[in-house]
Nucleic acid binder design. Structure first.
Length: 305
RNA sequence: GGUCGAGUAGCUCAGUCGGCAGAGCAUACGCCUGAAAAGCGUAGGGUCACCGGAUCGACGCCGGUCUCGACCA
């Protein structure tokens, strides 16, 4: 890493972090934006994920976008690999990266050194079958026996995490917990992070407005096009705003009901993002109430100096 | 105007024979290592519409009042 730390703007969905980043990049040539977002990685999922527009991408170099087709599975490790290369390239050409982050785990995996265990699909399939038949308890007991540290970091009822940990233990022959210190360690890293923090009611209003703008802007047609193509993968199919419109298009609910559900789930998602980010003591928080660009840009510029 | 039904947590609703007021969702808070816009957990929250009565004891029984709905006129 160079002497200049990389910049990070983070915050919940609809907080205005992309606008802040664009304005910063306009004022500081040589800035390149790196999107840290688990859903903007898919091609053709632009409206519902609020992917930066073609105009923005023509004006400022963007990275982290369009890394996979919507019918393919995508995961953290691949993201870290791609973004790691992008960051190295940016450094090499003497530019400065500005990360715009909405996905907490993806950001941690980029900023903090994490050794990602591999995948053992056949092991996982067997464990999942076992969990479906017997429930999570026997698997949790086994995890307690083989890796008590990992077991202590998860709930006995969280089937998905237990299965993953056992998959790694059986597949790698190493303890799952040996792959890193866990997420509750926050060592110094060469990234300076600014977080946007809105009063919850105001952010809820912005989310509602934005969802309606997405629908007016062609979200339904975008989903129809995706369904007409090869379809959505397990991971892409989880995107908020897409699964609900699919429900509507397949006749399970009205458009109004789908929109209401999107708004509700997006608000809940934003809270989950806040809860993830606010644990990190390295983040400098900026309270925003009106204009994210006007209120956050000065802090970002101060911190970037 | 009459008859019947309903009124219980923010919302939708359970509540057995009269014996400590319940669920789901929502909300708040927390967890998280190759699905993370995913997954999991904890908590707070009540004038049981209102007034009166009988009872050791009422969300429940009796009388009345109010509101909403359906039907009849």
């Amino acid at each position: 890493m160079s002497a200049r730390p990389a910049l990070v703007v983070l915050g919940p969905t609809a907080s205005g972090k992309s606008d802040v980043a664009m304005e910063f990049a306009r004022r500081h040539r040589g800035t390149e934006i790196v999107a840290i977002d688990a859903m903007q990685v898919y091609t053709g999922m632009d409206i519902g994920t609020a992917t930066p527009t073609a105009a923005d991408r023509a004006e400022v170099p963007h990275h982290g976008l369009d890394l996979a087709t919507p019918d393919s599975d995508f995961a953290v490790a691949e993201f870290v690999r791609v973004v790691g290369e992008a960051l190295a390239d940016i450094e090499r050409r003497g530019a400065r990266p500005l990360l715009v982050a909405g996905t907490g785990l993806y950001l941690r995996a980029v900023t903090d050194p994490m050794e990602m265990p591999g995948q053992w699909p056949e092991v996982r399939a067997a464990l999942e079958a076992e969990a479906a038949e017997l429930g999570p308890e026997p698997l949790f007991e086994r995890l307690v026996a083989v890796d008590p540290v990992a077991a202590s970091r998860m709930e006995p009822s969280n089937t998905r995490r237990i299965v993953r940990a056992l998959e790694v233990v059986q597949g790698s022959g190493r303890a799952f917990s040996s792959f890193g210190p866990g997420l509750d360690h926050y060592p110094p890293v060469p990234f300076v992070q600014v977080g946007l923090r809105w009063p919850r009611e105001l952010l809820a209003l912005r989310i509602e407005e934005r969802v309606h703008r997405m629908v007016a802007g062609g979200l339904v047609a975008e989903v129809e096009a995706l369904l007409a193509g090869p379809g959505l993968s397990r991971t892409a199919g989880q995107a908020l705003g897409y699964k609900e419109i699919v429900d509507h298009l397949e006749g399970r609910c009205s458009l109004d009901e789908a929109v209401d559900t999107i708004v509700l789930r997006t608000r809940q998602f934003a809270v989950r993002q806040e809860r993830w980010f606010r644990r990190d003591p390295r983040v400098r928080w900026v309270d925003v109430e009106h204009d994210p660009v006007a209120e956050v840009l000065p802090v970002l510029e101060e911190i970037s100096a």
